[in-house]
Design a protein around this nucleic acid. Structure first.
Lengths: 101, 101
DNA sequence: TTCACATTTCATGTTTTTCTTATATTATAG
DNA sequence: CTATAATATAAGAAAAACATGAAATGTGAA
C-alpha cells in the first residue's frame, strides 16, 4: 500500500497548497465560498475581517490556485476553483466538527 | 449542502492541524510514516534532514497530535496517530501526484 | 468631469516559522 | 561510574506570514 507517497518534486506544491488553507481566516473564507460564489463585501460582512486583510487573504488563495474571481461591474465574485478543496474540507469537517453540537 | 462548514470554535484547531502538515519536510516525514512506524534515525536517513531539524519537525507533529512515539530502549519509534492524516494524504496524492509519472 | 464605491496595493511593524549551532537528556554497554 | 548512541531542548538569526493604515486603482453614476 504505497498510494499516498508524495513525490519529492511535488512536495513543495502540496505544502504551498496546504499553507493556503492553514489559516483560520482563510478557512472561514473557504467555508463561505463552499456555499457558492460571494463578492468581497459579502465575505467581509460574513467573516468580519478588515477589507485590506480580506483582500490579502483572497490574493494568497488566488496565488495558490485555490480560488478565482469574475468581475461584474465594480464587484468581484470569488469562487473556489481547486477541485480538491471541497474534498479536504469535507474530511476536516467530518473529523473536527461532526458530532459536536 | 452545508456539510463542510467548519464552526468558528473549531477553526483554530483545524488551522493548527493543517499547519502541522503544511511543510515540505513534514509531508515527507508523514509519507514515510504512512508505510509504518519508523525511528528517528531511519527517518533522517530516508529524508536527509539534520537530526535537530528532524526532531523539531517531529515535535511539532506531536504537538498537533498528528504523530506519537513509543520507546524501545534508546530508540523512539514514531507513528501516525491522527486518523484523518491518511485520508488527507490520499486526497492530496490523488490530485497532485497521480498520473504524473 | 467629478464623485463615490469596491477592491487592491504599498509600506511598515509584529509575530510565527524555520534553520543552525551548541548543549542537554536518556538509555545502554563496558 | 564513564563513555557513547539516540534523541531532545535551548538560543540565536533569517525568512515568511500576518495585521494595520494610507494611498491608489478601476468602475459606474451624476
Amino acid at each position: 500500500m504505497d498510494l499516498m507517497q508524495i513525490k519529492p518534486d511535488n512536495v513543495e506544491a502540496v505544502a504551498g497548497f496546504l499553507k493556503g488553507l492553514a489559516n483560520p481566516s482563510r478557512l472561514l473564507i473557504l467555508c463561505a465560498l463552499s456555499q457558492g460564489e460571494k463578492n468581497v463585501t459579502e465575505l467581509i460582512a460574513a467573516i468580519g475581517l478588515p477589507p485590506t486583510s480580506m483582500s490579502q487573504h483572497l490574493s494568497k488563495l488566488k496565488t495558490e490556485g485555490i480560488v478565482d474571481f469574475r468581475r461584474e461591474h465594480r464587484t468581484l465574485y470569488y469562487f473556489i476553483t481547486h477541485p480538491v478543496v471541497n474534498e479536504i474540507m469535507t474530511v476536516l469537517y467530518g473529523h473536527f466538527c461532526a458530532g459536536k453540537g
